[in-house]
């Protein structure tokens, strides 16, 4: 089972945009190992993974999850402030370009602090995804789509988007 770094999908525009949120919780062990000046900080690398999962699902929907969508490159990533336990992260991913070989996406990261109501823009991430069956000619991969495992389907079902997958 792949470790999910998003909790639920909140918006979806077919073939264009997908939004997901992540609630940062002290119940998750990794936070206890990532403290700065006595404060638990959500690692930026895991936020990039959260964006990669959000954007990866979006790219996957365009082929009804028939393509194996692999993160190939972090083109750009910037973050302006920290996120800590109690905060909520919002990943807003959009497809910039897509063809048989892969896709490029751009995305924003917003933060809502614990107890707050307003969303604040704190980061941007540009990613490149590869459809590996199209780019690794001659390399044999399992026929089933190991990228989008059952827990991804669970997220789609929870968001009422199960019909996006076959």
């Amino acid at each position: 089972m792949r470790w999910l770094w998003i909790d639920c999908i909140t918006e979806h525009e077919a073939n264009k945009r997908l939004v997901a949120i992540k609630n940062v919780s002290l119940a998750e062990d990794y936070l206890h190992d990532h403290m700065v000046h006595g404060k638990t900080i959500m690692p930026f690398s895991l936020m990039i993974e959260g964006m990669a999962q959000t954007a990866g699902i979006l790219v996957g929907t365009t082929s009804r999850f028939k393509e194996k969508v692999i993160l190939a490159k972090i083109s750009k990533a910037s973050l302006s402030c920290d996120v800590t336990a109690g905060d909520t992260i919002r990943y807003d991913a959009a497809i910039e370009n897509i063809d048989a070989a892969g896709a490029s996406t751009s995305g924003t990261i917003d933060r809502r602090v614990a107890g707050g109501e307003a969303w604040e823009r704190i980061g941007r991430v540009e990613l490149l995804f590869s459809h590996i069956d199209k780019n690794m000619a001659g390399t044999e991969f399992p026929e089933h789509n190991f990228v989008f495992s059952d827990n991804f389907k669970m997220i789609l079902e929870t968001a009422g988007l199960a019909d996006l997958a076959d």
């Binding site: 490159k73 910039e96 370009n97 070989a101 490149l128 780019n135």
Partner: peptide, 14 residues
């Protein structure tokens, strides 16, 4: 590297 070629193709298209 090879994956950069896909990136370059997308950026030239745009």
């Amino acid at each position: 590297e090879s994956i950069d070629f896909l990136d370059i193709v997308f950026r030239i298209e745009k």
